[in-house]
Design a binder for these strands. Structure first.
Lengths: 142, 142
DNA sequence: ATCCTTCTTTAGAATTATTCCAATTTCAAC
DNA sequence: GTTGAAATTGGAATAATTCTAAAGAAGGAT
């Protein structure tokens, strides 16, 4: 079994569900996200995948990331207008953006809080997506 | 009193507090945001202000908006990687982004909910900014 | 096995929101 | 009035992303 195939079961499944093909590029891109879950940008994913698939192009990385987002395997995360970051955590979660290091931390969200958040919406407002982002400074010692 | 000066009291105050000058460009840009609170982009603000201040440049609109954000008179609002939008609502509020019309609606946030949201953060995580965004479709009939 | 069609990848050009820059202009203080 | 800092301006530069057209793979029908 090839290294990058370790995580590809869900990928193969979801791609098949969507009538899409399972390509090496898609597997390596997805694997890069799963292997180092530090919310990399497309450029960072590109750099990581290139070590294993030297011929891959940046456009393909963008294509693959978009495909993974469409398949609901990955979330695209945006802070202000910084480059989009990608996150394979499928649980409902918020993001804490540490202004000191630039790192992004996932904050799991209890269903109860999600329900309370939805409850602030007026009647008729139905949210498909809820995004919750914190920004702040973490104590240096961690 | 000139039209655009109607709303400029808070502006003059905040600018003075920050040691900045009160210019016609800043007044018109701020007034444009207050007059039509539809979360315009910089380009849209530019178009609106130009009708009253034909010589203003887009760079200046960007500068003024940035200044207003620095002065805490205006919030910059981002959805995905769409152009930044600007919002003069200073109350704690979330944004509902209507995918049908593209319109953005403010959702006021009770202090109690804000407190509960902050409570999901692990110890040591202190958030300076909390951003909550909903995306969904509103019933067409409104 | 081969053809055919469709999907995917690729390299590079194009797009576009925003920022940067250098040169004027404004304005408050002296 | 002069001076100096702050602000504005137009245009060039930047950078993330998307687009485009061409080449490459891959599955299904014959």
């Amino acid at each position: 079994m090839s290294t990058h195939a370790i995580h590809s079961d869900a990928l193969a499944q979801k791609l098949a569900d969507s009538g899409l093909r399972n390509t090496p590029q898609r597997e390596f891109v997805y694997d890069a996200l799963l292997t180092k879950r530090d919310h990399p940008t497309a450029d960072e994913v590109y750099a990581r995948v290139k070590t294993q698939l030297p011929g891959i192009s940046l456009a393909t990385v963008y294509n693959c990331l978009e495909t993974l987002v469409q398949c609901d395997l990955v979330r695209a995360v945006n802070f202000e207008r910084a480059p989009t970051r990608y996150c394979p955590n499928l649980h409902p979660h918020a993001h804490f953006h540490d202004e000191t290091t630039g790192a992004t931390h996932d904050i799991e969200l209890p269903a109860s809080l999600l329900a309370e958040i939805k409850a602030v919406l007026p009647p008729g407002y139905n949210a498909d997506v809820i995004e919750l982002t914190f920004r702040g400074k973490l104590p240096a010692t961690r």
